[in-house]
Amino acid sequence: MFFFLAALTAFSVGMISMPILIKILRKAKIGDNPGGRKIHTSFIPSMGGVGFFVASLVAMSIWAWQFPLPDIRYLLGAIAIMFIVGLRDDLIEMKASQKIVGQLIAVLLVVVASDIRIKDLHGFLGFHELPLWFSYSFSAFVLLALTNAFNLIDGLDGLAGTMAMLVFGFLGTWFLVQGLESYAVLSFTFLGGILAFLMFNWHPAKIFMGDTGSLLLGFTQGALIIAFMEYNATLPEDGFLQFEPVFTSGIVLMLYPLYDMARVFTRRLSQGKGPMTPDKSHVHHFLMRMGLKHNQVALMLGALQLSFILLIFVMADVSDHIALPIVSALALFLGYRLDKITVKYVKRKVHKQPRILDMKSRASRKHAQVSLDAEKLKSSKINLN
């Protein structure tokens, strides 16, 4: 009941504060203007992350004191730092190097101070306990990758919020079942805040989350996923909701952002571009080219993400050596089919459209017809008075 009330509190605070935030941001003209790679057609306030961060903070301050918070105090501090990094980038754009330094501070606070890290590969690829230096380095890399992968998918109304809702819902339930109450209350308060944000971010969006929100959500999900993987690995084999494929279960929770990032980076590098060069090669851009609307794309990708999460329940007793190749092959196959279908659809659409010369010919005939009609009108005996 406490966790439901925590989520409900965050949702209520978010619903009350979001319209106020939208009004303030509109007056301050802080947001995204249309044009360039932007899909929207009018000015939309950004920095919606402020709304669900405040909502989660208020809910945590009311309900979380009943649980042993000292074990996540450094995580909470790191989340606050990542929020400030995103806020600073939305207000005054930061250099890539400055942003990475800010993210590294938050990451090290989680990996080193909070000791939320990947400590053991549990026999995957023949590796077991990792050396301390490698565990720190590898965990920091994974957390940075998860943070920025999620940041990259925030380009469509409701998409990032839908993905975050699925992850926080799963993690909150799992942590609660396993008795990890401090992690559970954190997950549920973020879930409530995200649900409130989605009420205003669903198409047509009234506000975007901005880097303030996407970096915050990506980082928080990444840290909780690493914690989930490590606690899951310590459960007995016959434990309730124990997943044998430790790494596959963690990867699946962020499968879409990771796949989209890998796909986009590969395409850009193959075209001789830098991996961070902005373009319209994301999965959601391809689906939009097929004529789908924002909400349809968000629901479709959300349903696919949910399907992979359910798949990990089916493969709960299978090792990573089997589960990871199956998940990877399925994701690659679906991506390949998407590319083929999209290209075929676009070619058909272009073929049906009139060519430029035909359009000019039609326009000239129409103009001649109008001129001819005007000449006939002048020579007619109709009384024009």
Rank of each mutant, 00 (worst) to 15 (best):
Q98G: 04
Y259W: 12
G172T: 10
L75I: 12
D238C: 02
L180Y: 15
L125H: 04
L287T: 06
M315G: 04
S281P: 00
L108K: 01
I153M: 03
A55R: 05
W174G: 03
R365F: 03
I79K: 02
K347Y: 00
K344H: 13
F168R: 13
G192K: 01
Q353Y: 06
V370I: 09
P131D: 14
M165P: 00
D238M: 05
V112Q: 08
M315N: 09
I39R: 14
D279K: 07
I30E: 02
D90G: 07
D238N: 14
A78I: 02
Y74G: 06
I116V: 15
V314M: 11
S364R: 15
F286V: 02
D115T: 08
N148M: 11
Y183I: 06
L334T: 14
L195R: 08
T147K: 09
D320K: 10
V50M: 13
F286E: 05
I322N: 11
K352V: 00
L156H: 12
Q66V: 01
G172I: 09
L301I: 10
L258D: 00
I356M: 14
G86M: 02
H284M: 05
M290R: 11
P325W: 06
F228R: 06
A368P: 01
R88L: 02
D373K: 09
D260W: 03
M300F: 01
F53G: 03
E181P: 00
V314E: 11
V246K: 15
L91I: 06
R88Q: 07
M1A: 14
K381E: 14
F333V: 13
L311S: 15
S114N: 15
D317C: 00
Y336A: 14
I153G: 05
E244G: 05
V167D: 07
D154M: 07
A80V: 02
D317A: 11
A106W: 00
I81C: 04
G102T: 08
A227C: 12
P34K: 13
Q98A: 10
L57E: 00
L292T: 00
G239T: 01
F2Q: 11
L372W: 06
